[in-house]
């Protein structure tokens, strides 16, 4: 719906954004691929020549690899399960008529705006500290032995912190989706004799299907690369070394760039698989 003139203007105006993003994507990606086939130790001799797929094999063979995949999956899966289930429940609750809805919404959303380093530190020190943490006080109050959360229940602790950060996101999106449900549909179902449970199962949940998928996909992409939460709490110890953190350690701590880059390529592939599903949903929505 336009003229030749406006089409060429459009191409010109799109160019900066496209070129920048293309560069941002291709240059580092090419370099990562390049390094991944090299033995490259910046502090111990630098570029030591081509090694083929050595780095890829070594990365997978290393004793840290499978545990890191497992840690990643447990964190992602755990956070997803918690945020989606609680998110649906919370969205249903917030959708009910009540006094002070706006304020409650704000209270629930707040954690999303807390920067990851802050939330990790606050949880680590003020809640999970085995001596002075609030949880320790609570446990003592009930006569139980305080737990050293981040070492004894490290995974659960990380999942708790990350879930707290992402629950608002899930709730907000699911609440938006619930509010877009035509209330006449629910009234029709009520007239048809559907119980509240049946209404939830047959009408609300299917309506939320797409929103839940979107929440799952977007969170997965962000959760696969959580970093700050681990960086300031366990530094990857006590079984919380995720794939992202492992790569980070290979590259910056042990300065083995070749090996880290091979890991990076694995991470990119993993993220792309998830992204492909998300893109399909978003793309479908573009047509509508």
């Amino acid at each position: 719906m336009a003229t030749q003139h406006s089409r060429s203007a459009a191409r010109l105006m799109m160019a900066p954004a496209v070129v920048l993003l293309l560069g941002w994507m291709l240059v580092p990606l090419t370099m990562t691929l390049f390094f991944s086939f090299k033995k490259y130790l910046p502090l111990r001799g630098g570029d030591l020549g081509w090694v083929g797929f050595d780095n890829y094999i070594r990365f997978i063979d290393s004793s840290a690899f499978w545990p890191s995949v497992q840690a990643t999956l447990v964190i992602v899966g755990g956070v997803l399960a918690i945020t989606v289930v609680l998110g649906v429940a919370l969205a249903l609750l917030l959708d009910q008529p009540m006094w002070g809805q706006g304020v409650v919404r704000i209270l629930v959303i707040a954690p999303f705006f807390v920067m990851p380093t802050v939330s990790a530190l606050v949880w680590k020190n003020m809640f999970m500290d085995p001596v002075n943490g609030l949880f320790a006080h609570l446990w003592k109050f009930f006569g139980a032995e305080p737990i050293s959360w981040l070492s004894e229940a490290s995974m659960q602790s990380i999942i708790l912190i990350v879930s707290w950060q992402w629950l608002p996101f899930a709730t907000l999106i699911l609440l938006t989706a619930i509010q877009s449900l035509d209330s006449e549909q629910l009234e029709a179902a009520e007239m048809d004799g559907a119980s509240p449970v049946a209404r939830f199962g047959y009408i609300i949940l299917p309506h939320l299907g797409r929103a839940i998928t979107v929440v799952v996909l977007i969170q997965t992409i962000f959760l696969l690369s959580i970093f700050a939460e681990i960086f300031v709490t366990t530094q990857g110890s006590f079984g919380t070394r995720t794939l992202t953190y492992l790569i980070f350690q290979r590259v910056l701590e042990s300065q083995n760039v070749g090996l880290g880059s091979a890991g990076g390529v694995y991470a990119i592939i993993l993220a792309n698989i998830v992204a492909a599903f998300l893109m399909r949903i978003v793309g479908k929505n573009l047509d509508a």
Binding site: M31, T32, I268
Partner: peptide
Amino acid sequence: MLPAVGVLYPI
């Protein structure tokens, strides 16, 4: 969606 860690060193 590209994981930042994958391109950390090049950057």
